[in-house]
């Protein structure tokens, strides 16, 4: 059992969860993830580590509510316990000096990109951070990321949905002003990662993506998380989660992410009914 230190809504639908997990906090490296279960009947869900404190013995993730298990998670509070919290899993990101590194994050990835930006900065890189949110009120951790970045650029769509308000366009803008980017690292939804990879492909900039396929055990045992990369099959949990975005078979990943859309909807409906037992008798 792992005790929750805090669970906080950052912006609508996106929450932070900090858990007492001294062993995870001690070993955590940028790019790694944990697997947790919100309760005994929940799914095992992978969440990227967004921060950790080895001294305090806690680890933090940012997650978006998408299905039953994340919905359950969003209702837990400080002092509650998680039956499963295991990690850190996956290979750590390759951190080193590359020159100028562009870190792009959207959605839960704004949280997940934070330790990467911090590590790239500590390794002496010039760090440009790009954050994507549909509107300003969905943006969080901007201050935190400013502290570890040389520049922070925003792609927000408050007023109008314009092409220039998406990260790939912002990236091209930076290139147009003469910025030499040596490496791009993207964390967020599959669309954000694939569109950024497509934007950098013609420019030949090495682009690392942190994939988030469906997982079960997270130790290589089941193969649920397999992705096609460079013509071969990889297990995201043990071979990744970081891969070269130019080599990923994005269409396959899109399809596999949606494998259980119907079941997930049904599960959520059934579970929501249990929240209102009195109104369930038709």
């Amino acid at each position: 059992m792992a005790k929750i230190i805090q669970r906080q809504k950052l912006v609508p639908n996106i929450h932070l969860i900090e858990v007492e997990a001294p062993e995870v906090a001690r070993k955590a490296r940028p790019g790694q993830f944990v697997i947790l279960m919100p309760d005994e009947r929940g799914e095992r869900i992978p969440l990227t580590l967004a921060d950790w404190d080895a001294e305090k013995g806690t680890a933090t993730s940012v997650f978006m509510v998408v299905g039953t298990s994340t919905e359950k998670l969003s209702r837990l509070k400080a002092g509650d316990e998680l039956p499963v919290y295991v990690g850190p899993l996956g290979r750590p990101a390759e951190i080193g000096y590359f020159g100028t590194v562009l870190c792009a994050g959207g959605c839960f990835g704004i949280g997940a990109i934070f330790p990467l930006a911090r590590a790239y900065k500590q390794a002496g890189n010039r760090v440009l951070t790009l954050l994507d949110a549909r509107a300003r009120y969905l943006l969080y951790w901007e201050d935190k990321l400013r502290k570890v970045s040389d520049e922070v650029h925003l792609a927000l769509r408050d007023d109008q949905i314009l092409p220039q308000e998406y990260i790939p366009y912002r990236l091209k803008e930076l290139m147009a002003r003469g910025e030499k980017i040596d490496r791009v690292h993207v964390v967020g939804c599959t669309y954000l990662m694939s569109s950024c990879s497509e934007a950098t492909r013609p420019l030949g900039i090495k682009t690392i993506v942190s994939l988030n396929p469906i997982m079960l055990d997270g130790t290589g045992m089941c193969g649920a998380c397999r992705v096609s990369v460079g013509g071969g099959t990889k297990f995201a949990c043990v071979d990744g989660p970081d891969f070269d975005g130019h080599l990923v078979d994005w269409n396959e990943l899109y399809a596999r992410r949606k494998a259980y859309l119907e079941e997930e909807t049904r599960s959520l409906c059934e579970w929501e009914k249990t929240l209102f037992p009195g109104e369930n008798k038709l």
Partner: peptide, 16 residues
């Protein structure tokens, strides 16, 4: 694993 460990045979009572 889905069926035995995560009890998917009892979906949607279990989430997996």
């Amino acid at each position: 694993t889905r069926v035995n460990l995560m009890r998917a045979y009892d979906f949607p009572r279990y989430d997996t």
